[in-house]
Design a protein around this nucleic acid. Structure first.
Lengths: 188, 188
DNA sequence: AGCAGGTGTTTTACTCGTGAACTATTTTCG
DNA sequence: CGAAAATAGTTCACGAGTAAAACACCTGCT
């Protein structure tokens, strides 16, 4: 999380937007920063701080259905990648699909293999590469968890209303295109 | 990112368009899910998946200015909490401010104290509690890093345009209010 | 052929965060 | 008063992720 994280202790947090009647924790934090550094443009915090905070809260909440199945989120992401692509993937493809390091994928595969959720076979031509696929049990598990997760997510987002959800998805999509396009290039 | 990622972002609830102009990675993932499970409503993925992915990318990018100063993000969050509140905080207040565990705060305080960025003193009345404050060096460090971070964030968000940024901040604020309000109560 | 260099995957050594004890103090109240 | 419960903070053992080195294999060049 960014510096925009955290709950104000007692500060006189002034909402940044005039219409912001009830403020979330980020608004309060931004208010504190503004009081200390009135010269700084804290605009970006309102977006980035909120994204980080939402991600943290969602992660915690979303973990619940997964934990019932004894899976961590990264494990589920790995299984999900195999399920949604519909075919075998190599470990390196899995690192790309799940945005995690090779070492992490190796470890996860080891555990998931022991649990009988995935299987591996070696490539016949290139003996360096492995191919990983879901077992029937793995596939069933993913198919059982996914609807639960979506249902929960739906209830969490319900408060936004359908049009708000569409707008939000669209704006986040734009931002993501920017981030994915530029971020690699930008030497900060 | 979640395994559940979205629909095309057009705001319309329709399955992934083959010719969709610019995809972010989330749109692609959601498209794959829809192909496998056409019956599921993948709408929530488009929001939650993107939030998670944006958070991951931003975190990586934002770490850069911090690392130059030899700080991790959680360390900076701790210092930032002290800076923006403007007064001393106890370790337990810091756990609340930074949303991290007590053990983590203890460790961070130890390191930051050794580096001369924070100081502690015991409470005179209740000898269980400690009070932590920034040293001058700590204050200067925060004040030096914060503008860099905001500047970088501004450039990252520039692609959205000012009105888009306002909308996004506002929608995320609404979502955050929902999450912070309900999530604690919801036993998933 | 043979070897330099590239690629796919695993191993190693390490960092960091967490939950669950544990210590030390204060509060509650019979 | 004094024992039990509550609270603040730290310590411990562990799990999980990472970067970098190691390993195994392949490819291209001469």
């Amino acid at each position: 999380m960014t510096a925009t994280n955290g709950r104000p202790v007692d500060g006189a947090a002034r909402p940044t937007a005039p219409g912001a009647a009830r403020h979330d924790t980020v608004a309060a934090v931004v208010g504190q920063w503004q009081a200390v550094h009135p010269d700084l443009d804290t605009g970006p915090m309102e977006i980035i701080g909120r994204i980080n905070r939402c991600a943290a809260l969602l992660q915690q909440a979303e973990d619940a259905p997964l934990r019932r199945a004894g899976l961590s989120r990264p494990e589920f992401d790995l299984l999900g990648a195999l399920r949604r692509t519909g075919h075998e993937l190599t470990p390196s493809e899995l690192t790309r699909e799940t945005f995690s390091s090779g070492a992490a994928v190796t470890k996860r595969l080891k555990l998931l293999t022991e649990r009988g959720l995935v299987e591996r076979r070696g490539d016949t031509r290139d003996r360096r590469v492995a191919h990983v696929r879901l077992t029937d049990a793995g596939r069933d598990l993913v198919d059982a968890i996914l609807p639960e997760q979506l249902a929960y997510e739906t209830t969490v987002l319900a408060g936004l209303g359908t049009p708000g959800q569409g707008e939000l998805a669209s704006l986040l999509g734009e931002l993501l295109v920017q981030l994915e396009g530029r971020l690699g290039m930008l030497r900060v």
